[in-house]
Structures are given as structure tokens and as C-alpha cells.
Design a protein around this nucleic acid. Structure first.
Length: 586
RNA sequence: GGUAUUGUAGCUCAACGGUAGAGUGCCCGACUGUCUCUCGGGAAGUUGCGAGUUCGAAUCUCGUCAAUACCGCCA
């Protein structure tokens, strides 16, 4: 037997009992005649004591232990004379009577502690050591519980979990596919699914009514802190539902998960239309943890001889509270340079400081009298000590830029509080997006998304401008400015689906070759249906206030899509290529 | 594909164009109540790689490789 107890469970009530513990040596403290060893496993840390007076041979052996040695010990639990209140097991220690070294360890390249001294690259390479650390253990455990609670809830709502295939067909729309050569069908390729989209719709045609799956998806695109080439989704589809029923169901899931895992009651989620989100926050995934809503200033700022504003399509600002006296000219200059970075791309930043002493300082004071600016301040509710930041230019771009500034000010002013969660539904997305470069429409969500009922007729008959204005029954769940999931009511009618493919630039033949099976299925009594998918990794990260999903994935890829531990991808054997009928370009 | 930052001891970092250092870890020794043990000693470096400028380069220039963040991309 390796253990009677784990390293996290012994308490004062266990004093006197004989126990067997196994685990890793976290650290040892050697006093010559007395040696302490902290023994660690997934559950916690328990202190072992070895004493020269009691057992010289054993104590000498304990002094040879190095970090991360795996040992088994037998001993008696006793109360400590000096207790450690920082540790659950801190009231007791083990007076060891026997010890066996199960496996020695090389000195690890970084410390295996709460805050490791290792860099990202090193930690990825030795992922098995990094995963021994408390924070990673807690993240992976959190993820496990998140999956279990998801299944519990979906089961309680009568959903059926169905596995869909990973070896499917490549399609040119959307993200790049990971491609897998077929040996039995030389010259042909499978693709790994970007999502189980078409299969879950087929399951609706098949009458499963409510489907879900916690499933890996694959996209061969560039990575980010919150984007991995393989990631996990909570994927769902329902039949005979309206949009609001879907939102209700998955609001229920989200509320359940936050309650069970965080003990937080999220309350009712607000609904904001896509148009409104862009107008008020300049983003289709606004962070509602703080206000700082956009204030449109065309009427107030134009016509005062300031040409830059006068010639701009949109003049729009935000009020940052309590920054007027705090922000020096130097900081204002720094902030201006920040918005002028190529990633943001604003031409400049205009500010109006409503200073604490009642005076006003502005970069455009030449064009606007203090009275005008004071009246403006009153109108928009700027108090003494606040700063009005203004950007101007073409509306869509300016909104995006101001969104970046709003988020940055939120960060700088500490308005994104840890443990604060602000969910919302963004609804009524456009159906189509015009791509200037390729001069064609793209599906905003995906090509199976249905236009809103009232837009169906216009879609079948309308002109270009009408098409641009079509709304879809598509929706996103956003929490703290992070897109957690999205979905839509789908098309379940062959003709409408065909029309949508037409609009997206598919020829009839292409549409038939790629999605014929789905449209064929629609002709055999496809029920109205819709669904949603949540980014599982991202949800786990956001629920823990983190922006990177990597530490919630046991074995993530680095920026270049490499697994640093197994060193993949890698070349394959020439024989393997030959068998697949593949030759490489030099 | 682009922009930015970074690359120095096992690890985290410092070093004005002029002898490469600190903390921590590691090794040896001392120590009977530590839990960030303490004390003494020691080992440890092709400054990512390659050129160039210079009397002299970790430092400046160019190239290259790698990591990270962001933009493009992600239906």
C-alpha cells in the first residue's frame, strides 16, 4: 500500500494514528540532528520530521532527499509544537518511522511552487512539472468541474450528448482547415472540423431534438493568448425553438455554472442589439463592468471653426472620471501617442479637462470658449475633475478606436474589478458582411444562419443595399468584454439555404458538392432549429479573471502552434509520405 | 504577412562602448523546531547565432533564429 491518507487531509483529530503517505518532496529543511521534509501531492502538503536521536539511519537517509523525489513514508501523526497557520495540515506533522525512495528526481529546471520562477517557454517544455504547481492543478480541476457541471445541467434539460466525427470534409469558407491525408483514398483528404455545425443540424433533422457535446474543434489560424489551434466548445442545438428559448436555456447554463463553481449569482442578462452595442461602446463585445459610454458630439463640436472636427463624419467622446488633475501634460501626450499607434490608428486625441478648481483646459481651447465647454460639460454630465476625451473621423473606424481607448482607460483607472462579472447578450447581428477586397458577401456568423423572419422575403428579392441591411437571428454571449459564445437560428429550408449560398458567391455546383448532404436532408422534413456554442477554454479563463486560456489547457500550443513538450509538428518518414501518395516541394 | 518587446549562470534579472555581477537554485560543511531556516565555503557564462563598425562590443549597426503580446487572419 502506498498511502492510507493523502497529503492534504490530516488534522489535529488524527493525532496518534499511524499513517502511510506518498508524494513528492517539495523542499527539505535540514538542521543537522533534525530534518523537516514537506511532502506534496495534489491534495496538499504535509510536514515530515526525521530526528537523529530517534533513528540515525533514517534521518541520514532523509538528508539525501532532493526536490521532487518520490517517496513513501510510514509514521505517526503528532501535534506540532510550532504550528503553521498558513497550511491546512499545519497543526500536525508525521514522525516518520520508515521511508522508501520510490523514485529519485533530477533537479527541476524551475521551482515547483505557487509562483514559479520559470518563463513560459520553459514551463511549456516541462509541462509535466508545471502541471504539478498549485495554480495549474486548480485550473485543470476547475475545468474538470466545469465540464461535469455542464453535463449535469444539459442532462437536467433533457439534452443528449452525441459525438460527431473528427475526420470530415474540407470547406473553403471561414477559417483554414487542418487537413489529414487519406491512405485508402490516395490524393484525397479529410479535414478536422472547425465546429460540428453541419452534423448537429443533421441531428436535428434526425429528430434528436436537443443535442450537446463538449467537443474539440480545430482551426488553422494564427494564435493568440486566447486562441489555440485546437480548442474545446460546448456545442448545442435545439429543435422547435425560438431565439429567446435558446437564450433562456443557455443563460440558465451560464447562471448554473457561475453559481456552482464561483458561488456567484449573475442575475438576468441584458440584451443589446449589435447596432446599439456599436453605438454605445464601439464594440460588439462590450465590457459592461464600467460605464464610460460614448457621447456623440457632432452637434456640440461642429461649427466652431475647428476644421478637423468640422470635416469629420463623427465626433465622439468618453468621460474619464477623476483624471483631470491626475493626468499631467506628459501623460496626456503619452495617451495621445497610445491611440496613434498603428494598432489603434487614431490621428489624434482631443481632450477637455474639467479641472478640480473649476478651470478648463483643452487642446482645442482656441476654438471653443470656456463658456461653451462649460455648457457642454454640464450637458454631458462631466464633473469637476473629469476629462472628456474626443476622437473624430469616419464613424466606423472612430468608434473602434474609441472602444480601444475606453478599454485602456478602464484598465488604467482600475475599473475592471476582479470577481466582477457582467454578462450580456448581443443580438440581431447583420446576416452578411460586405468584403471590399474580394467584392463579395461573407456570412457574419456562418452560412447556415437564418435571416430574421421579417427579413426572409427581402432576402429572396432584395438588391445589394437591402442585403447589407439584413438582420440575422444570431446572438453572442459576452462576459466582461470577452466573447464566450455565439449561435443562431438556422435555415431549415432548402431554397433559402440555396439563396444564401448564392449570396455568398457559391456556384450551385460548389454548394451542392460541399453542403449537398445538408440541403438534401432539409428536403425530408427538417424542423426549425437553432443552437449555440460556448468557448469552453475561454469560459474557464474568464471565470477566473484571466485573459490567457493556455493555463486552462493541460497541453497547449505555443504562439507558432508548436507543442514544445513533444516537439510537434515534425517531419514524417519518407515511407509514410509515399504510402499517402504525397511528395513535398523543395 | 506586419508591428512592438525580449534573448546574459539551472532559473529570474542587472551591468555608461573599457575586468560580466546579484538574488535564487545547485554542491560541500556546521547547526535539534523549521516552514522565505540560519551561518561558512564552492562550482556554475561561446552574453541566442552570424557578420560588421571599433584599439576594444553583452552594449552600436545589419542579418538570422527563437519566445511573447498585438494587428491582419479567426464563416
Amino acid at each position: 500500500m502506498y498511502r492510507s491518507h493523502n497529503c492534504g487531509e490530516l488534522r489535529i483529530a488524527d493525532v496518534g494514528s499511524e499513517v502511510t503517505l506518498s508524494g513528492w518532496v517539495q523542499v527539505s529543511r535540514d538542521f543537522g540532528g533534525l530534518t523537516f521534509v514537506d511532502l506534496r501531492d495534489r491534495y496538499g502538503i504535509t510536514q515530515l520530521v526525521f530526528n537523529m536521536d530517534d533513528n540515525e539511519e533514517l534521518c541520514s537517509k532523509a538528508r539525501t532527499l532532493g526536490r521532487e523525489f518520490v517517496i513513501k513514508t510510514v509514521g505517526k501523526v503528532r501535534e506540532r509544537s510550532n504550528k503553521n497557520p498558513n497550511r491546512d495540515t499545519g497543526d500536525v506533522e508525521i514522525e516518520v518511522s520508515a521511508m522508501e525512495i520510490l523514485n529519485a528526481s533530477k533537479v527541476p529546471p524551475f521551482t515547483i511552487e505557487e509562483d514559479s520562477d520559470g518563463g513560459d517557454e520553459l514551463r511549456m517544455q516541462y509541462r509535466y512539472l508545471d502541471l504539478r504547481r498549485g495554480p495549474l492543478q486548480r485550473n485543470i480541476r476547475f475545468r474538470s468541474k466545469l465540464a461535469i457541471e455542464t453535463r449535469k445541467y444539459m442532462d437536467s434539460q433533457d439534452f443528449i450528448e452525441v459525438e460527431t466525427p473528427f475526420l470530415i470534409k474540407s470547406t473553403p469558407e471561414g477559417a483554414r482547415d487542418f487537413v489529414v491525408p487519406s491512405r485508402l483514398n490516395e490524393g484525397q483528404f479529410y479535414a478536422l472540423p472547425q465546429s460540428p455545425q453541419t452534423f448537429k443540424q443533421i441531428l436535428m433533422v434526425a429528430g434528436l431534438d436537443k443535442y450537446f457535446q463538449i467537443v474539440k474543434c480545430f482551426r488553422d489560424e494564427d494564435l493568440r493568448a486566447d486562441r489555440q489551434p485546437e480548442f474545446t466548445q460546448i456545442d448545442c442545438e435545439m429543435s422547435y425553438v425560438t431565439r429567446d428559448q435558446i437564450l433562456e436555456t443557455f443563460e440558465g447554463l451560464t447562471v448554473h455554472l457561475f453559481k456552482e463553481l464561483k458561488g456567484i449569482d449573475l442575475g438576468k442578462f441584458p440584451h443589446i442589439s449589435y447596432d446599439e452595442a456599436l453605438e454605445r461602446y464601439g464594440s460588439d463585445k462590450p465590457d459592461l463592468r464600467f460605464d464610460m459610454e460614448f457621447i456623440y458630439l457632432n452637434d456640440d463640436m461642429k461649427g466652431h471653426g475647428f476644421n478637423i472636427f468640422d470635416s469629420a463624419e463623427t465626433v465622439v467622446g468618453i468621460v474619464a472620471e477623476g483624471t483631470a488633475d491626475e493626468y499631467s501634460n506628459k501623460q496626456m501626450k503619452e495617451l495621445t501617442e497610445w491611440v496613434q499607434r498603428p494598432q489603434i490608428g487614431a490621428k489624434g486625441l482631443v481632450y477637455v479637462k474639467y479641472q478640480g478648481d473649476g478651470s478648463i483646459k483643452s487642446t482645442v481651447g482656441k476654438f471653443y470658449s470656456d463658456d461653451v465647454l462649460k455648457a457642454l460639460g454640464e450637458k454631458i454630465g462631466a464633473k469637476a475633475g473629469d476629462v472628456l476625451f474626443i476622437l473624430c473621423g469616419e464613424e466606423e473606424k472612430t468608434r473602434k478606436q474609441l472602444n480601444e481607448l475606453r478599454l485602456e482607460m478602464g484598465r488604467r483607472l482600475g475599473l475592471m474589478e476582479e470577481g466582477d462579472f457582467k454578462p450580456l447578450w448581443v443580438i440581431d447581428f447583420p446576416l452578411l458582411e460586405w468584403d471590399e477586397e474580394s467584392e463579395r458577401f461573407h456570412a457574419m456568423h456562418h452560412p447556415f444562419t437564418s435571416p430574421k423572419k421579417e427579413d426572409v422575403q427581402r432576402m429572396l428579392t432584395g438588391d445589394h443595399a437591402t442585403m447589407k441591411a439584413l438582420r440575422a437571428d444570431a446572438y453572442d454571449l459576452v462576459i466582461n468584454g470577452s466573447e464566450i459564445g455565439g449561435g443562431s437560428i438556422r435555415i431549415h429550408d432548402r431554397a433559402l439555404q440555396q439563396k444564401n449560398f448564392d449570396l455568398l458567391g457559391f456556384t450551385k455546383e460548389e454548394a451542392q458538392a460541399q453542403f449537398g448532404f445538408l440541403m438534401d436532408a432539409f428536403e425530408y422534413g427538417a424542423p426549425p432549429h437553432g443552437g449555440i456554442a460556448f468557448g469552453f477554454d475561454r469560459l474557464a479563463a474568464v471565470m477566473n479573471g484571466q485573459s490567457s486560456i493556455r493555463d486552462f489547457i493541460a497541453f497547449p500550443k505555443n504562439n507558432q502552434g508548436r507543442d514544445m513538450m513533444i516537439d510537434a509538428p515534425s517531419p514524417v518518414d519518407g515511407e509514410q509520405l509515399k504510402e499517402l501518395g504525397i511528395s513535398l516541394n523543395e
